[in-house]
Design a protein around this nucleic acid. Structure first.
Lengths: 109, 109
DNA sequence: GTGGAGTATTCCGATACCAGTATATGCCTA
DNA sequence: TAGGCATATACTGGTATCGGAATACTCCAC
C-alpha cells in the first residue's frame, strides 16, 4: 500500500468525496457544491485522490466526471488484515466472559 | 472514527510501531532501536498514537511499556465496510467474465 | 474564431508536521 | 539523598499541506 493513499485519506474533504463517489460518479461542479469549497481547492483535492489511484476521471466534453476506484481501499483492507485477529480475539474473550457470566448466574438461580 | 486516528496512521514510522506492537508490547527503548530514530522523536510518535487511542501505556518502574489497542482499527474496518461491496462487485464481475470466457472457449472446442 | 462554461494550475499566506538538540521529569539503587 | 537510567517535553528549523484569489487551459456552440 502506497504512502500517497494514506496521505489522501488523511483529509476529511477527500474522504467526503469518496463517500459521494460511492453512490455514483460526479462532475467536479457537483463536488464543489457538496463540499462548500472553492472550485480550485476542490480540483486540488481531486488531484491528490487521482494520484493516489482512489479515483478515475472520465472526460465528457468540458466536464470531467470523477468515479471511485476502490483498488487502493482493497489494499487498505489487506493492510488491516493482520490486526483483525486482535480485536476478534478480544471479542472472543468478551464472548467467553459473557458466556461464563451467564452460566454462573444460571447456576446461582 | 476520529480525525486523530487518520492522522496517526499517516506516518510510516507510526505504522511501523503498530506492526511491532502486533507481536508483543515494547518498551520505548526497544522502539527507538527498531525505528532508528532519536529517543525524543520516538516518544513524540508514541504520544500521537496514544492520543489517537491506538496504543496504551503500562508504566513499569522507569520504563514505559507500550501495547497495541486495536479498537480504532476496528473503527477503520467499519469505515471501510461500505466500500467492500464495491471491489467485491468488481471481482464478482471479473469472475463472471472469466466464467463466460471459459464457457465460450469450451464451446469452441 | 469568439464567447462562455467547466476545470486545472499557479501563486501566495497561514498553519501543521517531522526531525533533531537540549533540557526536564520520574523512579530505582546504593 | 545523590547518581543514573528511561522517558517526556520545549524549542527550533525545514518542509509539506490547506485554503483562497487570480489566471490559464480546453472544449463546445454559435
Amino acid at each position: 500500500m502506497h504512502e500517497a493513499v494514506w496521505a489522501a485519506l488523511n483529509d476529511p474533504h477527500r474522504r467526503a468525496v469518496l463517500t459521494l463517489l460511492r453512490q455514483r460518479p460526479h462532475a467536479v461542479g457537483e463536488l464543489v457544491g457538496a463540499l462548500s469549497l472553492s472550485q480550485p481547492t476542490t480540483s486540488k483535492h481531486l488531484r491528490v485522490l487521482r494520484e493516489a489511484g482512489l479515483v478515475r476521471v472520465l472526460p465528457a466534453a468540458q466536464r470531467r466526471i470523477y468515479a471511485l476506484d476502490p483498488a487502493p481501499l482493497a489494499e487498505l483492507d489487506a493492510w488491516l488484515a493482520p490486526y483483525r485477529a486482535l480485536w476478534n480475539d478480544r471479542l472472543d474473550a468478551l464472548g467467553r466472559h459473557l458466556d461464563a457470566t451467564v452460566t454462573d448466574e444460571q447456576r446461582e438461580t
